[in-house]
Simulated scan of single mutants.
Amino acid sequence: MDTLLQQLINGVMLGSIYALIALGYTMVYGILRIINFAHGDILMVGALTTLSALNALGAHFPGLPLLAQLLAALLAAMSVCALLAMAVERFAYRRLRNAPRLAPLISGIGVSVLLQTVAMLIWSRNPLMFPQILPMDPIAVTAGSAEHPPAIITVTGIVTVALALAVMGGLWLLVEYSRLGRGMRAVAENPQVARLMGVNPNQIITLTFVIGGAFAALAGVMMASNYGSAGFAMGFLPGIKAFTAAVLGGIGNLRGAMVGGILLGLIESLGAGYLSELTGGVFGSNYQDVFAFMVLILVLVFRPAGLLGERVAQRA
């Protein structure tokens, strides 16, 4: 039972990060019907920008509390990633909106490679240690025993889950009840009709990329805080997994991205945990990626619309 609870805790924490990244994929797809494969690398830029900002603040303002340094660095990273996402939309996707679907896909992959290369030149190709801001001391959730260690969680894990849920809930309220959200839904339904109703599709699309980029930066900081390191290649695999989560929940559907992210995190953690236990540790966490891509294949074969489906009107 302790093992099950520990894997559930790990799965929810991991799934919260996936869900936060998946929101960027699903918002862009819901409006433009394209997959922004550069989204995971924007996450990487956010984590490394935060690291650079923390180093600069520590050098110039050594008396500033660590939490204040983290907040200032996070705001700087979210701003950088929002501007970067805006630039990606403007130069990599805007002219390809009416092109065959393969063209934006190739453009996104090209931007991904470009961002990784630039990051490698700026921050080096070696993983960098991310400073420990929040306590990482384990908190026992169960009593445990000599044979079975207790299930544990950390303050960083608790903050990660709580912050991810708060951000996801705030985004859902924004889309459902704000003027910007109504504009997003209108452009997703029919950009030509939305333009006639006074909505500027270019502005809405740009703001969608900006919001997704800011959330990617936040997810990057969460990942770097939990794993203790950041590097130029850190965003590629989580980005692909977040895309899997978006497909699992129903890409284009915000609630689907949230549900898909949490489910994918649980599937990975439970699968890897019990596989390790059944094989005596021969196969373990190194094989958790297999479960994510097995899920992607099964969903694409048996339920391409995802668990919550997607209701989108046909464009004229």
Rank of each mutant, 00 (worst) to 15 (best):
L263Q: 03
S229P: 06
M234T: 14
L254R: 03
G284A: 14
I139P: 07
L64W: 09
L71P: 00
L74V: 02
N253V: 09
I21K: 07
A68G: 03
V301M: 13
G110T: 00
L196W: 11
Y18F: 06
G231E: 15
A146M: 13
A143H: 12
G58R: 02
H39F: 11
A76M: 03
G40D: 06
G24N: 05
P131A: 08
L254W: 07
L248G: 04
L115D: 10
Y93D: 01
D2Y: 14
K241L: 07
F232W: 15
T49N: 04
W123S: 01
I133P: 04
Q116T: 06
A219M: 02
R315Y: 10
Q288T: 13
A85G: 11
L307G: 02
L20Q: 05
R195G: 07
I9W: 12
N98Q: 15
G309D: 07
M86K: 04
I34P: 06
I139K: 11
L163M: 14
L264I: 04
Y177P: 08
L20T: 07
F243D: 09
D41W: 02
G260H: 03
M86F: 15
G213Q: 05
P150K: 15
V159P: 02
L218M: 13
S79H: 09
G58M: 01
L84D: 02
C81M: 06
Y18H: 00
L121R: 07
V167M: 09
G231Y: 14
I17N: 06
Q69M: 09
Y287G: 01
A257E: 01
V259H: 10
A272E: 07
V88C: 14
G144D: 07
P100C: 02
L74S: 13
A47V: 11
I21V: 13
A77G: 04
A230S: 13
V111Y: 06
L23V: 15
L278G: 00
I31L: 12
L105I: 05
P104Q: 04
T244I: 07
L264V: 05
M44W: 10
L43P: 04
L196P: 12
Q7A: 12
A214Y: 13
M168P: 09
N200H: 15
G256S: 08
M1G: 14
A85M: 15
L307A: 04
R94V: 11
L275F: 10
L263Y: 05
N126Q: 08
P149G: 02
Y18Q: 00
G169V: 07
A82M: 15
R179D: 15
A217E: 06
T208G: 08
A53C: 11
L71T: 09
P127T: 11
V167K: 06
A272M: 07
A77Y: 05
R315K: 08
L102C: 00
A151P: 08
A233Y: 14
Q288G: 14
R101E: 13
P127I: 12
I153M: 10
S124P: 00
W172P: 01
N36K: 04
L51M: 08
A245L: 01
F37H: 09
A194N: 04
Y29H: 14
R185M: 10
A56F: 01
V187R: 12
L70S: 01
L74Y: 06
A194T: 09
R97Q: 15
M86I: 12
G108C: 06
F291A: 08
R125Y: 15
A305D: 02
N200F: 12
G280A: 03
A68I: 07
R311M: 09
S107W: 02
